[in-house]
């Protein structure tokens, strides 16, 4: 049953087999994708035709590696910029929200808290179309009322940033709130007694305490934004983000360049995950 109880051999072996199968299931698609990024073939499929780095480095007429693939490189850059702004916005607003819900009292607080949680249960596609509709309505209003054409209200970079921010801020709020709840408020009171005002106390004391949570939340926010598909799908303009761009390529037939990009993403995110784990261990 559990560690401390006697277990039959058969139970343990079959349980280990199950775990083995589970992890195979979990990793098979990733491993295959990575391996085929190095296959010297025009298609991401077996048979194995030899090892090559050309899907990363080549700049040949019939084979363009990722490092020379303008379109994909541009979409990576767009995604990185979007993720940067989403992270800044959602960390700022999410931290404000954490302070608001943990430390302030005001009427209708439970209702507002419930509203803050709602993006967790709204499907991303719905969030995307709602924001698209609303921005379109605002854009039409500005145009008919004042004859103004506001680029912000059309699908494009900033609308993607706002759309992703609208639900990522909730996650940041939850992560930062959880840490803020453990904060000993007498420390803040001590600072106030010593002549600091509320903002100085927050800046010098509370934010220092919150830093690991804020850094962790920022990392998660960046990653979620970088990989978001559902909400972005409806809000993107002519500059597409990486997931949308990859989706269009995968839908219309694929080349091993996609494997090469996937390989870089897998290695990059795994390193980030390990680093994150290492630093969070060190904190404790």
């Amino acid at each position: 049953m559990i560690r401390s109880l006697p277990n039959s051999r058969r139970y343990l072996y079959s349980y280990k087999l199950y775990m083995g199968l589970y992890f195979t299931f979990l990793f098979a698609p990733l491993v295959v994708t990575c391996v085929l990024a190095f296959n010297d073939s025009q298609f991401p499929a077996l048979p194995w035709k030899g090892f090559t780095l050309e899907w990363f480095t080549a700049d040949l007429p019939h084979r363009v590696g990722i490092f020379h693939d303008r379109m994909n490189l541009e979409s990576i850059w767009v995604s990185a910029q979007v993720a940067f702004f989403v992270t800044i916005l959602s960390v700022t607003v999410g931290t404000c929200a954490a302070f608001l819900f943990e430390q302030e009292e005001f009427p209708f607080k439970p209702a507002l808290y419930f509203l803050m949680l709602s993006p967790l249960v709204i499907p991303g596609v719905i969030l995307g179309i709602s924001i698209l509709l609303f921005s379109n309505t605002l854009g039409l209003y500005c145009e008919t009322r004042w004859g103004l054409d506001v680029p912000l209200f059309r699908p494009g970079f900033w609308l993607v940033v706002l759309g992703q921010f609208s639900f990522i801020a909730t996650l940041v709020t939850l992560v930062v709130s959880a840490r803020l709840r453990k904060f000993d408020r007498t420390l803040e009171e001590a600072a106030l007694n010593l002549g600091a005002n509320r903002f100085e106390a927050i800046w010098h004391i509370t934010l220092k305490f919150l830093r690991p949570a804020i850094v962790g939340a920022a990392a998660v926010a960046f990653l979620m934004s970088f990989e978001n598909f559902n909400t972005t799908l409806f809000l993107t303009g002519s500059e597409t983000t990486l997931p949308i761009n990859l989706y269009l390529q995968v839908r219309d037939g694929s080349t091993p360049v996609i494997n090469a990009i996937s390989f870089l993403l897998i290695v990059g995110t795994s390193l980030a995950a390990v680093a994150n784990l290492y630093f969070s261990r060190k904190q404790e």
């Binding site: 698609p29 990653l223 694929s254 996937s262 897998i266 995110t269 795994s270």
Partner: peptide
Amino acid sequence: WVSELVRVYG
């Protein structure tokens, strides 16, 4: 941690 798209592609 890896994008859903990469996993589906796999």
